Amino acid sequence: MPTATLPSVSVKTRAWAYFDRIVADAALDGAHSNPWIIDPEGLLAYAADFDTLERLLGVPLYLKAATTTGVPALALDVWLSYELRRAGFGKDAVWPRAAHPRILPQPVAKLMDGAPKRLQAEISRLLTTKTSIQGVTSSSASILGKNYLKQVDVIMTDWQTGPELLISTKRMDSSFGKNAANRVEESYGDAKNLRLRHPLAALGFLFGLRSTILDEEPDKAEWLIDLLEKLGREDDAYHATCLVMIEYGGSVEAPADDDVLDAENPLVSAGLESEPEDEDVPSEPSSDVDAVLAALPAVKILHDKIPAALSPSRFLGTMVRRVIDATPVTMHREARARIREVADSVY
């Protein structure tokens, strides 16, 4: 009797199983820790969860995921979304969500929450068993800027408010001389495009960079870091920029760059090509996930190589505060309460 052939599972599908477990371990039973602290100078500050970030960054290395798969940069997106939930924003408000479907409009989530239990189950089954539903769910989100649609990696939006937070992420582990200028130039254009249509949205840019650039091409590293700082000071560009300096062992192979900037296809964002189907479910067996997470390559964030102006904690604090400052006190109550909980204990 011939053996049945099992369907192949995409690298991104495998990565999501590991990402989801890491995030779930960091927020047991959905309870997120409060990221706000009082720093040594007595000031309210955001304290990012770097342990979780380092675990997430180990996943694409374990999978040997090429840049074209989108998985290396996706690790940064997953972490940012997790941090925004730590800050008190709703589980369905921040995309990508911590469960499939990754992009789910809030009215649909509210409809499901308010529906009778039987109907809830039917809607849930429909949403979770399909990779995407055109016009409803998706694996990525595109937002119209001044002149063109742009895929945004981490986003908070609703029909009542419009976009409230837009974060673009890039990652570069190799080919520094070949791609550094292109990525910075592209980020300037993206910022202008989005800022002009959504001036009140908190607009941010996070750049993940492998630390080998510091030894291999120190001049380019200095130039790139300087540009990132300047990019966060422009009046009509990003409200904040961020650098994540990533170190991992020389024996661990860097994600293949394949001479592309990232996995985003601008023609898909513009609606000129259809988005490729992305198998997002099912996840791998629990025992396999546990074994893989125990064997992830070690990754370290080099905080001493990151200028204070580009600190991930500073970046997240700035983005959260901009969202809160641009909305009425009746909105984002949990995010406000988390800040008050710490601030009131001192002031």
Rank of each mutant, 00 (worst) to 15 (best):
I155W: 08
A294D: 03
D25G: 03
R14L: 13
T330W: 04
D344Q: 06
M319A: 09
W223V: 12
G317R: 08
D77H: 11
V320Q: 06
A98P: 15
W159F: 13
D39N: 07
P328Y: 00
I339H: 02
V136D: 02
A309P: 07
L243C: 00
E186P: 07
V108Y: 00
A335P: 14
L302H: 15
R85W: 09
R336L: 08
V320K: 05
S8V: 05
T67A: 05
A201Q: 09
I133T: 10
K12F: 13
D20N: 08
G135D: 00
Q120C: 01
L267V: 05
E253R: 14
A237K: 12
F315S: 11
D77F: 06
E185P: 01
R340D: 09
L224I: 05
F205W: 06
V11Y: 02
R183W: 00
L43N: 13
T13N: 11
D49H: 04
L63W: 11
T68A: 09
R118Q: 12
T212K: 04
R314N: 15
L228V: 00
T52Y: 01
V268G: 05
K12S: 11
Y18Q: 01
P2A: 02
I324H: 10
V260Y: 03
N182Y: 10
W223F: 12
A75H: 12
D49P: 04
E279M: 11
V78Q: 10
P35F: 06
A141N: 05
A337K: 15
E222Y: 09
A87R: 04
R55S: 08
E222W: 04
S274L: 13
R14G: 07
V252T: 15
W95Q: 04
G250K: 12
A308V: 12
A115C: 15
T212Y: 03
A75M: 11
